[in-house]
Amino acid sequence: MKSLFDSIKINSMISKNRFVRSATWENMTETGYMNEKLLSIYEELAKGEIGLILTGYANIVKEEQPNAGMFGIYDDSFIEGYKELCDKVHKYDSRIVLQMAYGGTKTTYNVGERIIFAPSNIPEKGTGTQGKEMTKDEIKYIVNAFAQGARRAKESGFDGVEIHGAHTYLINQFLSPYYNKREDEYGGSLDNRMRFLIEIYEEMRKVVGKDYPILLKLTSTDFFQGGLTFSETREICKKMEEIGIDAIELSGNLHGKGESLIGESFDEYKIQNEGYFSEFAKVVSKEIKIPVITVGGIKTFEATEDLLNNSNIEMFAISRPLLTEPDLIKRWKNGDKKKVKCIRCSKCRNKDGNYCILIKR
């Protein structure tokens, strides 16, 4: 029987257990740089025995910030602050991976004050934000920005990087036939729609080397008619494994709506009460050999352990419950297996930072 407290290897990185703190937008830095409040949050998570911490996403170019309070990784001035962050996390034998993103039109922040890139002239469904269809030179610019962000992450001491290719951010939009209407080599067939993601990965790999972990976050399906389907996501996962990606995190694009959609089917697979997207992850984990991470809706130790032992899913990512209980994994490890205290009210997204309103700040 496999244990949730087994160590697990992702390329050269070894996580001491199978629990992941999924990338969480803290909204606690006005400049994009580390500060004492953020350092304290991450140190507390590491003390809480989480094996792998994924940071909130960092913007890769200065002019593109999808939300207020995001990390930055767009120039070398960020490296010193991140060194301190990584040192604090490593002190407790946790691993930390920097998530990087270009948000694109999945934003209402400072719209009209900046150019926002998109694959095609299609507004994002939720925000209505219109982007500029990218030229090939602009595509190269963003590909290079991801690569240089990975270089800075490695120099900072992060144990790896994660490419955010989910949640209708720019990479996801290139993958999606709804958003990508291009007629050049970046549009049309799935192979063409994957080209942007593949170029990003390959440039990153050139910069960081073959032994440095590069993870990828993908949307299981776009969850709407005409969008990316799960069958296409499965093909993307196989291709990315083939070219060298080290782990895949399968998510959704529901943003707090998971509880209301439990039991509903999308592309013939249901949203689950425990592990919303675990049915999708189960399928992919049978088709590829690299670690598959499921995220969303983890509520009990017993159900998570059951998922581990009745699928090929290797790791389990948690976000909101760790806002309520940063020491949740330590509690479970010490034998207190009660369910998470988080009630999934989604009231943790606040203008002055993301925090659980059920506990004292």
Score class of each variant (00 low, 15 high):
residue 275 G to I: 00
residue 275 G to D: 00
residue 275 G to T: 00
residue 275 G to Y: 00
residue 276 Y to F: 15
residue 277 F to I: 02
residue 277 F to G: 09
residue 277 F to R: 02
residue 277 F to P: 03
residue 278 S to E: 06
residue 280 F to R: 11
residue 280 F to C: 00
residue 281 A to C: 15
residue 281 A to I: 05
residue 282 K to P: 07
residue 283 V to R: 04
residue 283 V to A: 01
residue 285 S to N: 03
residue 285 S to D: 04
residue 286 K to R: 11
residue 286 K to H: 07
residue 286 K to Y: 05
residue 286 K to L: 08
residue 287 E to Q: 06
residue 289 K to A: 12
residue 289 K to P: 07
residue 290 I to N: 01
residue 291 P to Q: 07
residue 291 P to Y: 04
residue 293 I to K: 00
residue 293 I to P: 02
residue 294 T to L: 08
residue 294 T to W: 02
residue 294 T to Q: 02
residue 295 V to P: 00
residue 295 V to L: 03
residue 295 V to M: 10
residue 296 G to E: 05
residue 296 G to T: 01
residue 296 G to M: 05
residue 296 G to K: 02
residue 296 G to Y: 11
residue 296 G to D: 03
residue 297 G to A: 08
residue 297 G to I: 10
residue 297 G to N: 11
residue 298 I to Q: 10
residue 298 I to L: 15
residue 299 K to W: 06
residue 299 K to M: 07
residue 300 T to A: 02
residue 301 F to P: 00
residue 302 E to F: 09
residue 303 A to G: 01
residue 304 T to F: 11
residue 306 D to P: 01
residue 307 L to D: 07
residue 307 L to F: 08
residue 308 L to E: 10
residue 308 L to G: 10
residue 308 L to R: 09
residue 308 L to V: 08
residue 309 N to R: 06
residue 309 N to K: 03
residue 309 N to Y: 06
residue 310 N to V: 05
residue 311 S to I: 07
residue 312 N to R: 13
residue 312 N to F: 02
residue 312 N to V: 08
residue 312 N to M: 10
residue 312 N to L: 03
residue 313 I to K: 03
residue 316 F to N: 12
residue 316 F to G: 15
residue 316 F to P: 14
residue 317 A to I: 11
residue 317 A to K: 12
residue 318 I to A: 08
residue 318 I to G: 05
residue 319 S to C: 15
residue 320 R to Q: 14
residue 320 R to T: 09
residue 320 R to L: 06
residue 321 P to S: 10
residue 321 P to C: 03
residue 322 L to N: 04
residue 323 L to K: 06
residue 324 T to I: 10
residue 324 T to H: 11
residue 324 T to L: 11
residue 325 E to V: 13
residue 326 P to C: 15
residue 327 D to L: 13
residue 327 D to Q: 14
residue 328 L to Y: 02
residue 328 L to W: 01
residue 328 L to M: 02
residue 328 L to N: 03
residue 328 L to K: 03
residue 329 I to T: 13
residue 329 I to D: 10
residue 329 I to N: 11
residue 330 K to M: 14
residue 331 R to V: 07
residue 332 W to F: 07
residue 332 W to P: 09
residue 332 W to S: 13
residue 333 K to W: 09
residue 333 K to M: 13
residue 334 N to C: 08
residue 335 G to Q: 15
residue 335 G to R: 13
residue 336 D to A: 12
residue 337 K to R: 15
residue 337 K to I: 00
residue 338 K to V: 02
residue 339 K to Y: 04
residue 339 K to C: 00
residue 340 V to P: 00
residue 340 V to T: 13
residue 341 K to D: 05
residue 341 K to N: 06
residue 342 C to L: 04
residue 344 R to A: 15
residue 344 R to I: 07
residue 344 R to M: 12
residue 344 R to P: 01
residue 345 C to M: 08
residue 345 C to D: 06
residue 346 S to F: 13
residue 346 S to L: 04
residue 347 K to L: 14
residue 348 C to Q: 05
residue 348 C to W: 01
residue 348 C to N: 02
residue 349 R to K: 14
residue 349 R to A: 15
residue 349 R to Y: 13
